[in-house]
Amino acid sequence: MGIVEAILLSVITAATPLVLAAAGELVAERSGVLNLGVEGMMIMGAVCAFAATQLSGSPYIGVLAGIAAGALFSLLFGFLTLTLVANQVATGLALTLLGLGVSGMLGESFLGMQGIKLQPIAIPLLSQVPFVGPLLFRQDAIFYLSIAIVAGIHWFLFRTRSGLKLRAVGDSHGSAHALGVDVIRTRYLAVLFGGACAGLAGAQLSLVYTPQWVENMSAGRGWIALALVVFASWRPWRVVAGGYLFGAVSISQLHAQAFGIGIPSQFLSSLPYVATIVVLILISHNRRMTLINTPASLGKPFVPDR
């Protein structure tokens, strides 16, 4: 395998959790819910996936556990913001703080353990194609899932009736309610899906990216995923583009450290965070464009009048 392939491969591995978490959050935001707890759901997914893998011996059980943990954790957010109409920004922060705390506690006995890596699955024939084969068709199940999920979200949002309803709920919950759409139910499902995706992203971190458990191993990726949704202007395929761009930034930083160029490692490590800020500025400085793209009911609470 050449150096270019190796670098591209590492970019894909770094990008997959970002793409997954951002895609899930995109659906939640399209339904009008701003869930700032992505980081918390992701880290819960990571710790539960790792623990389940260690206990069962199968990383696939781990993947399922990660998804379940993220989804369950998001229900907590749903209950507070949708049923009890608590402030979405504050509740999202609470979810992140709680997730970091609970995962630290759950993961304590797994610290320093040798992880079990999710093995790649080679797709017959396609994986034999030179260059593209090893890159795209000799990957782990989570990578394939990430692409399938993005394609599924695109199809669902723009080609199905339920997707149209979900977007209607996000753009004007009052009108959607008047037309008989169950706003709260739609939002619960969207939040749950977002949680499952964030959990899966977390599972990727502790089973593929670095197969071990380290406290706070999500290292702000949940927040970067939130920025990615803005960057993608709430369109599924742009999440993939953005995710790979960020994956490339974080990988280039690692390679630069390896080559030992004269810049202190801390400055290189801060690159993904600085890049996030720069991208956010570029995307949102045009106020009108932002207004057109943002779901109009994003972050606004809804209480059905009875």
Partner: peptide, 9 residues
Amino acid sequence: RVFQGLLLF
């Protein structure tokens, strides 16, 4: 950390 998170919730 768990107590702090719970409290905010």
